[in-house]
Amino acid sequence: MIELLSSLGCRVLKDEPLSMHCSFKIGGPADFFIEIPNEPALSEFLKIIPDDRFYILGGGTNILFSDEGYRGTIVRLTGDFKKISISRDEILCGGGALLSDVLKTAYENDLTGLECAIGILGTVGGAICGNAGGRDKWISDAVKSVEVYENLKREFISREKAVFGYRKSGFENCIISKAIFSLKEDIKKDSLKEISENMQKRLETQPLNMPNVGSVFKNPDGFSVGKLIEEVGLKGKCVGKGAGFGTSRKFYSKYGEALLQKTF
């Protein structure tokens, strides 16, 4: 397997520490860590490795790895999958492209529609999979179509056929290899103002000076998790040595009931 994938341009690492590949900077070794640079290599990989033996990793900015590592293969799309091109008011990019690079391309070409992505450090594939965005706008608003690999088949799915929702997309069991964003001409040059406002909000509300994954909570319908935490007096609380790095299972077992009662 290693010889075949290496001959196709893949970078294959054994016992690679996952702490090197996520924003939390923690995590034990993966049996294999493979960087796949193009579609021929991806097709061959999918013929070799069963679906339940690999995990597709984007930018590593929305994941928490165990200290025990991962018994299987971690896959990251690189090379051709990071390319970005533009055609009039559309941006075509690979699933491994950094969302920040796509936003920069849009801004440099006077296109608007992706301002909600400012400050999100992951890849296009990861952002679409989790329907990343802010409080009121989502990346799905700008998606025209998505190319995915599922069960050894490549398929193009339009925005209309996708199943986007709050922090979900319906692509969770697929590999997102490409995406097309349909944007609008920024005639009034308003995108810079919105980008600045969104970035300032992230700077004020997220601990960007330490390892983190941004906001880790999903808001229940009609509620704000942040507001609920403050109302029950839990803001700043922590258990163990995890202060500043999210909320542990022990925290939930100790304080989760108060949140549930406040929510329902």
Rank of each mutant, 00 (worst) to 15 (best):
D101R: 14
D101L: 10
V102F: 11
V102D: 03
V102R: 10
L103R: 05
L103I: 15
K104N: 12
K104Q: 13
T105H: 09
T105G: 01
A106Y: 06
A106L: 09
A106F: 09
A106C: 11
Y107G: 12
Y107T: 15
E108L: 13
N109R: 13
D110C: 14
D110E: 15
D110G: 02
L111S: 06
T112P: 02
G113Y: 02
E115S: 13
E115W: 05
C116E: 05
A117G: 12
A117Q: 06
A117P: 06
I118F: 10
I118V: 15
I118R: 09
I118A: 10
G119H: 09
G119E: 08
I120M: 11
I120N: 05
I120G: 05
I120V: 12
L121N: 11
G122M: 11
G122E: 10
V124Y: 08
V124R: 00
G125Q: 04
G126F: 00
G126T: 00
G126P: 07
I128L: 10
C129T: 06
N131Q: 10
G133F: 10
G133Q: 05
G133R: 04
G133C: 05
G134K: 06
D136I: 03
D136E: 14
I139V: 15
S140H: 05
S140T: 01
S140R: 06
S140A: 15
D141T: 11
D141R: 07
D141I: 03
D141V: 03
D141Q: 12
D141C: 10
A142W: 00
A142Q: 04
K144I: 01
K144N: 03
